[in-house]
Design a protein around this nucleic acid. Structure first.
Length: 221
DNA sequence: GCGTGATCATGA
DNA sequence: TCATGATCACGC
């Protein structure tokens, strides 16, 4: 593992220095194997980049670079430069949500400052040959933050009203709520009708590709 | 089971 | 073709 970067500039420089490098080359340096594909290693690219950039948070529910207040997100892009996948943000709280506000939410904290690292994501490109793209540091604009806040409040209101099982991925303009679990049999506690406890599938907040596409676009304009 | 890292696979 | 709902691996 590399040391933790001591400043935002140092982090950005590290990310810039691996732009254009193939996953094979990065894996060799980290002394790890490149899997044949991502079917059984969905988080492999993210962990490869964590290693190279010196992220230390591990599986803690905090920003990847706590000291710098920065979250790392790799984002797979198509040949046209558009995101191929939505972006997971964090697990959604389903209980103990009384008094939670956007201002203190994990979503806002994680997205307050993000190092986006685009990576080649087309499945027809062998994993070992895919390359890292140019990084960018981003914070939400006022408009973006308002969009996120609006979505978050709508989703959290449904959760607190015991309507979590009526939420589907079509809710939320930019921020959506979807399953986040090992499989569909996993259960966690939530509020049901009349506030009675129920067991339901754990959920996570995800950014729509439309939202992340704009972030990347604006950087290149 | 929870939270991290996410992408897969299928129906519309 | 594309987004939704489901899924995979790991540390603890």
């Amino acid at each position: 593992m590399k040391s933790e970067p001591q400043s935002e500039l140092e982090l950005l420089e590290r990310a810039s220095n691996i732009a254009g490098i193939s996953f094979q080359e990065l894996a060799d340096e980290a002394k790890i194997e490149v899997p044949p594909d991502l079917r059984r290693d969905k988080g492999w690219v993210g962990q490869l980049l964590e290693w190279h950039l010196g992220a230390t948070a591990g599986s803690k529910p905090t920003q990847d670079f706590e000291q710098l207040g920065i979250e790392l997100k790799t984002i797979p892009i198509s040949y046209s430069g558009k995101p191929l996948e939505t972006t997971f943000v964090c697990v959604a709280p389903l209980v103990g949500v009384h008094g939670l506000t956007w201002e203190t939410s994990h979503v806002r904290n994680k997205l307050s400052r993000v190092l986006w690292v685009p990576v080649e994501g087309e499945r027809e490109i062998p994993l070992a040959e895919r390359r890292v793209g140019s990084p960018l540091i981003w914070s939400p604009s006022e408009e973006e933050e308002l969009q996120l806040k609006t979505d978050w409040e709508e989703l959290m209101e449904m959760i607190v009203l015991g309507r979590v099982e009526q939420i589907n991925a079509r809710h939320g303009e930019m921020l959506q709520l979807r399953p986040k679990a090992a499989n569909s049999r996993v259960l966690t506690e939530a509020y049901g009708a009349s506030g009675k406890p129920i067991k339901t599938l754990p959920r996570g907040f995800y950014l729509r590709t439309q939202f992340t596409a704009r972030i990347l676009e604006q950087h290149f304009i």
